[in-house]
C-alpha cells in the first residue's frame, strides 16, 4: 500500500512537470494524469521493494544537502581524468573495500557516487556488500594501510558516512 501511494504521487508530480507549459493546467489534463498515475502505481505495487520504510523527509533533505559536496568531488574528478587523458599517466588496479553498509539503497548510492568521483569505478558488488573498485591511479601508501576504515578513505573520502545517513 505504501509503495502504491508513493509511486502514484511521484508519477503524478512527474506528469504535472511534463505537461506544464507556462499557463495553468486544464481540468482534463489533470484528470488524465490522475488516471495514468494510478495505473502506474498499481503496476509498481506488485514489485517487492524491501526498503520502502526508509524514505522519510529528513532523508530527502539530507540527500539535497549531499549535492554540493558531491558536485565538488565530481568537478575534481573530471580535471583529474582530463589530466590523465592529456598526459597518459595511469597505474590501474582493482581494489576491494568493505564500507559496512547494510541495505541496497545505500550501497546503490555509494556505488554511483564512487563511479562519478576521482579516478574510481565500481566493478562488482558481492553478497556481503563489499565493493570491488577499479582505480585508475593506485597510490602506493594504500597497501601500507590495513585498517578497513582508512582504506575506504583513500578510495571514496567520506561518502560511506553520507550513504549511511541517507539510506539507513
Amino acid at each position: 500500500m505504501r509503495v502504491f501511494v508513493s509511486a502514484t504521487i511521484l508519477s503524478f508530480i512527474l506528469w504535472l512537470l511534463l505537461t506544464f507549459n507556462g499557463s495553468l493546467w486544464q481540468a482534463d489534463e489533470i484528470l488524465a494524469g490522475i488516471v495514468f498515475s494510478i495505473l502506474a502505481g498499481l503496476i509498481t505495487a506488485k514489485i517487492n521493494i524491501k526498503e520502502h520504510k526508509n524514505l522519510s523527509l529528513t532523508r530527502w533533505l539530507m540527500f539535497i544537502a549531499y549535492f554540493p559536496r558531491f558536485f565538488y568531488e565530481m568537478a575534481k574528478a573530471n580535471f583529474d581524468v582530463a589530466y590523465r587523458v592529456i598526459t597518459g599517466k595511469i597505474k590501474p588496479g582493482i581494489v576491494k573495500i568493505s564500507p559496512g553498509l547494510k541495505n541496497n539503497l545505500s550501497v546503490t548510492l555509494l556505488a554511483n557516487s564512487i563511479t562519478l568521483t576521482p579516478g574510481t569505478l565500481t566493478v562488482e558488488v558481492d553478497e556481503d556488500k563489499n565493493l570491488y573498485v577499479h582505480w585508475i591511479n593506485v597510490r602506493d601508501d594504500f597497501f601500507q594501510e590495513h585498517e578497513e576504515k582508512c582504506r575506504c578513505k583513500y578510495v571514496c573520502s567520506t561518502f560511506p558516512d553520507w550513504a549511511r545517513r541517507i539510506g539507513e
Binding site: I90, K91, P92, G93, I94, V95, K96, A111, N112, T115, L121, T122, V123, E124, Y132, H134, V138, F143
Partner: peptide, 23 residues
C-alpha cells in the same frame, strides 16, 4: 557504466597493466 564493467570482467577481459587485482 557499472553494468558494462561487470559484464567485461565476467566475460574475461583483464585490466591491462594492473598493479593489483583483488577481484
Amino acid at each position: 557504466a557499472h553494468a558494462i564493467a561487470r559484464a567485461a570482467y565476467r566475460s574475461g577481459v583483464k585490466p591491462a597493466g594492473a598493479v593489483v587485482d583483488e577481484l
